[in-house]
Design a protein around this nucleic acid. Sequence first.
DNA 1: GCCCAGGTGTTTC
DNA 2: GAAACACATGGG
Length: 213
Amino acid sequence: MIMIRKIYDTLLKEHAHQKWWPISDFTKPKEWEICIGAILTQNTAWKNVEKALSNLKNANCKTVDDILWMDIRKLKRLIRPSGFFNQKAKRLKTFSRYVIDNFGSVENFLKNITREELLEVNGIGHETTDAILLYACGKPYFVVDAYTKRIFSRLGIIEQTWGYEQVRELLEKNLPEDVKVYQEYHALIVKHAKECCKKTVNENCILRSLVIV
DNA sequence: GCCCAGGTGTTTC
DNA sequence: GAAACACATGGG
C-alpha cells in the first residue's frame, strides 16, 4: 500500500524530523530513561512525564538499581505528576526487578530482550513494549498508539475494530524495515495528532488531500 | 466543571 | 472475547 509511504512523506514535509525519543540524558545508561518514560507516559500527557522525570533526576535516581532500592512511597511521591502513580511506581519496580533478575544489567537487557518476553511483564503492554524495543533497543517494531489508529482509520486505511497486532503488521509490511523510519513515523504521527488531528475532525488537516484521490 | 492525554490489567457480561 | 471500569495528575 503506497499510501502508507505517502502519508509518511507528507508528514515529514509538513513537520520536519522530530528526532525521537526525547531525553534529558540523566540516566545510566541513557536508554534507561526511555524505558522509564515509556512506562510513565501510559495514557498521560508528556508534559506531566517531564515533571516526573525531572523529580527523579533531582532525587539522583538514575539507574535501575536506584529504582529497586528506593522506598516505594518516595518513588510514588517523585512520579506523582505523571498520574496513576500508585500503579506506575509498582510497574517501575516490577520492570526493574525483571531486568536485573533476568539480564543482570540494563545493557544486557537491551541487547537480548525479545518482544515475546517483554509482553509477559506485568504493566508492560503492546505499545510500551514496542516503544522500548524501537527507541531503547533500536529494533524494528512499529509503535501503534491511539493516534495511529485514529489517523489511519479516518483515512479509511484500517477499521476502528482492528487490534494492535493487526495495525502494526500492516504498517511494518508496507514500510522498509528501517528503524530510523519507524522511529520518525511514530514521532510524526504524535506531532501531527497534537496539532491537527484531535478527536474532533479538523477540516484543514493536510492529510485530507491524500484521501480524495 | 468537563474533556483529554504518546495504556494496561481486571472484572463482567 | 469484547465491553466496561479503575487508575490520577495537569493543561486547555
